[in-house]
Design a protein around this nucleic acid. Structure first.
Lengths: 173, 173
DNA sequence: GGCTTATTGAGAATAATTACAATGATCCTA
DNA sequence: TAGGATCATTGTAATTATTCTCAATAAGCC
């Protein structure tokens, strides 16, 4: 898969009457250099930018990730509580969905071609252009249920889910 | 489908060491009396409560819809920009998913059993309890693409989607 | 009826969006 | 190919959306 270049970004922006700015180019690069499976909140991204010596305002960060999500370049993820995360929207080969435990916020990624095909069918039915589709599954672990909310300690990890062999567990916040 | 009574809510809360309060009971009733297909933001709900003579604080409103979402009683929807919406989580017969135009925010509901089955398969694989699953499809209408963002007028409606016969269109704020 | 502690309301804190004037990317013209 | 016009974008600050803190209250338990 060829990398999405600044020139390609510019072309896509200009096509819609928008503009390529150094800020947008820099933010795109950050996401492109992010290891697979990682995602950033707006705050994370802002910190990362500062760390790399760029001074881009937090507003611009928020605006840019929102814009790029609308363009289909990024995906906006609503997983754990409190804040959104963003990742590159690579329709393939790493398109995936999320399963979240609403108690302990453990997040698991999973692939599912069937879901993607259903989404495609749905958009074609109305002549719309598919930008992204996300199946988010909300679950509760039996252990979490038993221990109850809000009694859970801050960093408690959902043992059940881990024990059952989730392959890509990651906890946010 | 028998109505979900206050007694049932109490039983479910107490089982986890939580309590039934007049506020929670009132909020549940609001959602139960909401016409099918409607959803409320926290602010909407707060206004509706005031209109009916209940004085429940906005904090409690936010906390309650969050709690009920975790319990699987409500669904939290992230559709248009800016704020979340809540609706009753009736797994059947009205379980549905959403397709959104990221430009004009036109939202269409649709049913899809295949998606639900895939979600069930995924949770069973890890021994987790399915609370809810939501497939959200992000699209762009050709017209919206052509007209471009942010040039769109405040209340512009995505004609393409309407013309193609979306059966349950609703626009959020 | 009293004890324990989850829940509430008020307000502070955090997350995210928006308004507006200044800036600068793109386009047009000479 | 430079110069200027246009208007999208930025940064700052204000606003809105949501969560959290904490003391007072009240639901559930005995």
């Amino acid at each position: 898969m060829p990398p999405y270049t600044a020139a390609a970004l510019k072309a896509e922006l200009n096509e819609k009457g928008w503009r390529l700015t150094p800020q947008r180019e820099t933010i795109l690069k950050i996401f492109q250099n992010l290891p697979k499976g990682n995602h950033l909140s707006a705050e994370d991204l802002h910190h990362e930018l500062r760390k790399q010596g760029h001074s881009i305002s937090l507003s611009t960060v928020y605006r840019t990730v929102k814009l790029m999500s609308r363009m289909g370049i990024l995906r906006e993820l609503e997983l754990a509580e409190g804040h959104k995360h963003y990742e590159l929207n690579t329709m393939s080969p790493h398109h995936h969905h999320h399963m979240v435990c609403v108690q302990c916020n453990l997040t698991m990624e999973f692939d599912n071609d069937t879901v993607f095909k259903q989404a495609l069918k749905q958009t074609e039915k109305y002549g719309l252009q598919l930008i992204d589709c996300q199946l988010t599954i909300y679950t509760i672990c039996p252990e979490a249920l038993r221990r109850g909310y809000p009694g859970l300690p801050e960093n408690w990890v959902c043992n059940k889910a881990i024990a059952q062999g989730a392959d890509l567990p990651s906890r946010d916040k």
